[in-house]
Amino acid sequence: MTTTPAPPAISVTGLRKSFGEHVVLAGLDLTVPTGTVYSLLGANGAGKSTTVRILSTLAAPDGGSARVRGHDLRTEPDAVRATIGVTGQFSAVDSLLTGEENLLLMADLHHLPRRDGRRRVAELLRRFDLVDAAQRPASTYSGGMRRRLDLAMTLVGDPQVIFLDEPTTGLDPRSRRAMWRIVRELVSTGVTVFLTTQYLEEADELADRIGVLHHGRLVAEGTAEELKRLVPGGHVLLRFADPTSLEDAERALGTSSRENGTLALRVPSDGGLRSLREVLGRLDDRSIEVEGLSVRTPDLDDVFLALTGQPGTEKVST
């Protein structure tokens, strides 16, 4: 056993991959500390799945290097496979077997002793709400159930780094929330989660750090808050009871704009406490009554739009 400090769960340097003429990854760098959730955010065709395929040993990069828990992908793929779990975008369950048989298959492939395997399977069926469906063939499962079974199968081997490629794409809102809860529980047990998504809300909900992938390159990286701060568009919305107060406030604050047809004023702000206090202080000095106030910080949609010039939900064809 080594006594050096644990390496980051994932470290990627200059990763490149092309399919023929088409460049999918154009030099990707990222680091994911152990025990955190990293979300790769991007539209379809941005290179998210390719990144997961490379990091999970399914595809070889054309250039650059990557390590998972200190193991080099190129020279120690076996060691990488022994430590990861992957739930791909497309269901990887055996439709002809029942849910329980699928999980037992995984237990056998991880060489768990029979009794431990059965216990682990029973526990996962409970945790993923699949007890009632355990004896039914997976072909009869709904999309959400298949996805849960898929993830449960990934967890049989106690992976330390889990790759989730668009785990909630195509799921209904309820199943999506269930999946989020499961991911949060996973992280609380200390595993590292690398997740791709095209939903900004999902990255915002789950990730410690977010990387925005666009045309095979990271165009921004940081916490959801840091990313939001990158874009202008944050403001304070002040509402007034009468036109007089509105006009007074407009004069007092200077840089502001009226909301059309309402008695509201939009004041640019980073949403921080200091700037808010300043705005309120100026109004207070002139005894202007404010009826209501709301702070609007940009959401990740704004971030995405600002960084890539495209709305996050737009599909980019490849």
């Binding site: 056993m1 022994a82 430590t83």
Partner: peptide, 29 residues
């Protein structure tokens, strides 16, 4: 979970055992 990487023993392959498992899967089908 805190250990960096699995013990070398975990990296051993078990082709016969895995083949038996996979055969069971196909027979079950």
């Amino acid at each position: 979970p805190s250990l960096p990487g699995p013990a070398p023993a975990a990296l051993r392959f078990h082709p016969l055992r895995d083949s038996a498992t996979m055969s069971r899967r196909n027979l079950r089908h």
